[in-house]
Design a protein around this nucleic acid. Sequence first.
DNA 1: TTAAATTAGTTGCGAGCGCAACTAATTTAA
DNA 2: TTAAATTAGTTGCGCTCGCAACTAATTTAA
Lengths: 146, 146
Amino acid sequence: MATFLKNLNAISRGTTLFRDEKLKSFGLNGHQVKYLFAVCNSEGVSQDELANLLFVNKSNVARQMTALEEGGFIRREQSAEDKRVSKVFPTQKAKSLMPFIRSVNDEWRAILCAGLSEEECGQLSRLLEKLVENARQWEGKVDKNS
Amino acid sequence: MATFLKNLNAISRGTTLFRDEKLKSFGLNGHQVKYLFAVCNSEGVSQDELANLLFVNKSNVARQMTALEEGGFIRREQSAEDKRVSKVFPTQKAKSLMPFIRSVNDEWRAILCAGLSEEECGQLSRLLEKLVENARQWEGKVDKNS
DNA sequence: TTAAATTAGTTGCGAGCGCAACTAATTTAA
DNA sequence: TTAAATTAGTTGCGCTCGCAACTAATTTAA
């Protein structure tokens, strides 16, 4: 069990490091890629929805959106129906970068899953999905609202 | 793939949160448990070895050892053979706490793995182990010494 | 034997993170 | 209809983290 968490840390760290390496020349760090990727896959998403999608606190979304906006990767648009809501859109610059970001992700997955069969890879995804569901259910129960 | 990393974050966060909840009354937070657990399972380990075991930067080990020492959970002893090395030992206080820490870990694993069979749980551990190995190999290749 | 290279540990720095407190907009109830 | 509760987003705080630069001890080479 202790092993378990340690392992997740190692993989998370590696992922960020890999993305850092590949994307720093574009003015993005390994953490920001995660946010930008989500925005590009859900254009017009609200910051609150982003926080839920990415399992991070909404304060981090606010800060990263400011950074990405200053970097010219996204723009925010106040929702007409609900003026509290900021809808987030990728800029053309971000969209142009997406194929490359996808290739970086693919490359990293290939490195991570080297030596695993397709079945094992799928099995792993499925099992992790289940664990996340369990974790979220517990987190919901203790009601750290976020 | 994007999903993949997000999932790891959610599980990591849940683990820390759970440990925070259960152990704060003992003066330990969710992160420190990880370090203390490793020390208790490898009495006399060096800080450098701890960093490798836990996949964290050695600077964090130094800081957490200072905190754990101040909290009365560990003591450091300069190695006689190599005066650069600090050997780290758990105090009696820490040892007494270990059964409880183990039960917290077990409880969390039970929550995480609810709905999974023994075989699936084992399979998951095995697959993650492989991924970590792959990640470490890549991290070693880019030589971020740490 | 002495000088250079390596190693364990520490510290300053900047970054990400979660939480709590806040503002402003919206919804719910009285 | 107005007051209370909720919601989206922002900001201050304190924590952990990784990196780089540093000290002191040790090992390697000249």
